[in-house]
Structure formats: structure tokens, C-alpha cells
């Protein structure tokens, strides 16, 4: 922290009213306005030049992307590479100039991985030095080539919350896990080399897990003794699901899109069997296909 929070009241009437706040509290306020508004404070007065750099969270969301896009249009800047380059410049600068530890970093990337990979890898490199805690990186393009995460991504060991969209996840052999991670949201993430199960089990504190349209996962063997909320929307390649090793699940949403089978090829769509391995469940959500299968099985048993 930057100060002891001891306040000295200025008696002079020309003193501005925010100067009594220590820098960390000003940064706390600026962290709650948009990044654009925070940067605008740099022109308020001399001493405000660099206050905005101290914001504990940097968020470049869709709104930012849209505003930037408008500004490109106004300037007549239509060259894709040039846009990507300027987008990177803004983001890399905010990271490079940030003087302290960064709590949260979020970027919605409006361009395709084909041009963005080197830029995004550079941001991840900066982040890996900054003890980043909450990270969101999402490619928001419709058709996107997946971006393979660089090895140094796996040295962001302080992560508590992580959201990724359209990346390829291949943890290096020496990766010991994200030991503080409690929230993990993966959308369109590709797990290569069957690393899914070992990756999930190397995040022992996970409480909330969302897996949407991830590829390279055939068997959703979910483990985690703290896991409370689980959402799975699987792709066509998946074969089974097992929740036995996550006994504390309370909210479970499954959208498998096809028949769910147990580990030894047994159909676990039988709701009774399924509930048996979820002693603490309070909320269950399924898609219609899952329920159809359950109903068929039920009929079969009655006959």
C-alpha cells in the first residue's frame, strides 16, 4: 500500500477535494470506471498524469473494442494488421507501465488468432511476472483458429479465477497445477494429449467449473473435493462422464448432446444411479436428449 491512510486536512480553499485520498484509494475508485475514463484522468492536472496506471484491475471489454472500432472507422483505418497493432499497443502499454501487482486483467479480443498470437503471448509473458490473480482472455471472433497457450502461461501460479475462450491447453510436463484456482471457465478450449483429467485434478481448490464446447475430452472424469458448481456442454466426441470424485457438487448442469455413459460403458443416464454419486446436489439441469435417454431406460426397466 502507498500510505498509512492518515489524513491531513488542508485548510486552503484552493485545495482540491480528492487530494486528501491516498493513491491506493484513488486507484481503487479509478479501477471501477471504464479503462477509457480512467485514462482520461491523466489530463486533469500535473499530478494526475500517472494515477490511472495504479488501477488494480485492467479491463478491455467489448465496449472498449466497439469504441476503438468506431475510432478506427472515423480515422479511416481499415487495415486489419494496423488495427491489431494499435489494439496491442494500448494493451501492452497498460501492462508494461503498470507499477504494481495486478489483481485482474481482462481482454475481449475482437481479432482472429492468426494475427493476434504473438501479441497475446507477449501479454501473457508480462502477466506471468505480475502475480496475476484473475485473468480473462477471450477471442470474440466467430471463426477462429485456436491459440496454443505458451509454456509461461503455466507459471501464472497465483491465479484464482481464469476464463479462456478459443485456446489450446497443453500444460508442460513440469506443471504442478494452479493451486489457488477456485473458478475456471473454459469455452471452446482444446485439450491436447488427453491432458483434461490431469489438468482438472491439478487445480485442487476448484469450486466452480464451466466447460463449454471444449474439444479433446472423451471422458469427463471430474474430480475436486471442493467443487460445488459444474456446467458441462460437451461436443460430439465425448463418451462418458464421472462425478464420483466430486462429492460436494451442489449445482450440476449437463448438456451432453448425446447419451451419457458411465465409466464401464454402463449408461448412467438412469437418474437414480446418477443422483447416487451426488449426495449434496440441490440443483440439476439437463438437456432434452439426456432426459429422453433417461425416460427410455425407465420404460425398459418397467417392462
Amino acid at each position: 500500500m502507498f500510505s498509512e491512510g492518515v489524513k491531513v486536512k488542508q485548510s486552503g480553499s484552493d485545495e482540491d477535494i480528492i487530494s486528501s485520498l491516498p493513491l491506493d484509494l484513488i486507484a481503487c475508485i479509478l479501477g471501477k470506471v471504464s479503462v477509457r475514463e480512467a485514462v482520461r484522468t491523466s489530463v486533469l492536472a500535473k499530478k494526475w498524469r500517472f494515477y490511472y496506471l495504479y488501477i488494480p484491475q485492467i479491463v478491455f471489454d467489448n465496449e472498449f473494442c466497439e469504441e476503438l472500432d468506431d475510432s478506427f472507422e472515423k480515422k479511416g483505418c481499415y487495415i486489419h494488421e494496423l488495427q491489431c497493432n494499435q489494439f496491442d499497443e494500448i494493451i501492452a502499454k497498460s501492462l508494461l507501465l503498470h507499477p504494481g501487482e495486478l489483481e485482474k486483467f481482462k481482454v475481449c479480443i475482437p481479432y482472429d488468432a492468426s494475427t493476434m498470437v504473438p501479441y497475446v503471448n507477449k501479454w501473457i509473458l508480462y502477466l506471468s511476472w505480475r502475480n496475476i490473480k484473475k485473468l480473462t482472455l477471450t477471442y470474440n471472433t466467430l471463426i477462429t483458429q485456436s491459440h496454443k497457450l505458451p509454456p509461461y502461461f503455466f507459471s501464472c501460479l497465483e491465479l484464482t479465477s481464469l476464463k479462456l475462450k478459443s485456446f489450446v491447453l497443453t500444460p508442460p510436463l513440469e506443471f504442478k497445477g494452479f493451486l489457488s484456482l477456485y473458478k475456471l471457465i473454459l469455452v471452446g478450449v482444446d485439450f491436447t494429449n488427453n491432458c483434461f483429467e490431469s489438468f482438472i485434478s491439478s487445480c485442487p481448490l476448484l469450486r466452480r467449473l464451466v466447460l463449454r464446447d471444449c474439444s479433446g475430452v472423451h471422458h469427463y472424469n471430474i474430480s475436486g473435493s471442493y467443487l460445488e458448481r459444474l456446467f458441462i456442454k460437451a461436443d460430439d466426441n465425448f463418451q462418458s462422464i464421472s462425478l464420483e470424485k466430486a462429492p460436494n457438487l451442489s449445482d450440476v448442469y449437463l448438456y451432453p448432446g448425446k447419451i451419457v455413459e458411465g465409466q464401464e460403458g454402463n449408461c448412467v443416464s438412469d437418474l437414480v444411479t446418477f443422483m447416487g454419486c451426488l449426495p449434496k446436489v440441490k440443483l440439476l439441469g439437463f438437456d432434452s436428449q439426456f432426459l429422453q435417454v433417461s425416460a427410455k431406460k425407465f420404460l425398459f426397466q418397467v417392462v
Binding site: 479503462v35 477509457r36 475514463e37 485514462v39 482520461r40 491523466s42 489530463v43 469504441e67 476503438l68 468506431d70 475510432s71 472515423k74 494499435q86 494500448i90
Partner: peptide, 8 residues
């Protein structure tokens, strides 16, 4: 940082 000072 011109992007922060223009726009809506």
C-alpha cells in the same frame, strides 16, 4: 492515448 479522448 487518443483513443481515450474521442468517441461516444
Amino acid at each position: 492515448a487518443p483513443w481515450a479522448f474521442e468517441g461516444p
